[in-house]
Amino acid sequence: MNKEVTHCLLCERELQQVITWQTLFERSWPPVICERCEAKFERTHYTTEELTTIFYYNDAMKNFLRQYKFSQDIILAKVFRQELNKLLRNRSETIVPIPMNPLKKKERTFAHIDELLHAAEIPYEHLLEKTTTETQVGKSKLQRQQVAPLFSCTKELAAKHYILIDDIVTTGTTIAHAKKALLDAGAESVTAIVLIKG
């Protein structure tokens, strides 16, 4: 499926074909970025009961996000599919991506969180919608927490346990609001896995 990626998606150098042993229980894809680019991403090893993050927001990650979201280079969703797959594949909770504003999604032509999960072959369900189009930029942490709820549930909840997925966490307000919306709708537990710790 991935044979067409012969050059690093980030720096265009030719990819060395590495032969890896694929075990019976682990999904493994051939790499889409070179070792040199991969080494530039810095892992956080950050896991609490509530939140797991995978990478720090360093220069390499900043460039990645700019190219993925701003330049709309959707194929970059494949860069972190191995990590996301590994973390999520055996989870029994329902996976819920943080939703995008529908107008913003149309403008960007894709929902970046959904595409990350899609590339990692992780099934997910949209259960939230944004209640306001106001952005958080320019507001203090206190202001953000005081504003009206950012999300509401779109459906009656069928499951009890949930994992929220987002691309980047800074103050944690987005995750907190999403979590509250799910808990208010009857969820028993809500944790979060976020690609980048800002």
């Binding site: 067409e4 990626v5 012969t6 050059h7 280079d73 959707i74 194929i75 999604k105 149309k106 960007r108 032509t109 894709f110 929902a111 595409e115």
Partner: peptide, 9 residues
């Protein structure tokens, strides 16, 4: 290989 196909919103 330089053309990427996707479902466009």
């Amino acid at each position: 290989e330089k053309f990427i196909h996707f479902h466009c919103a």
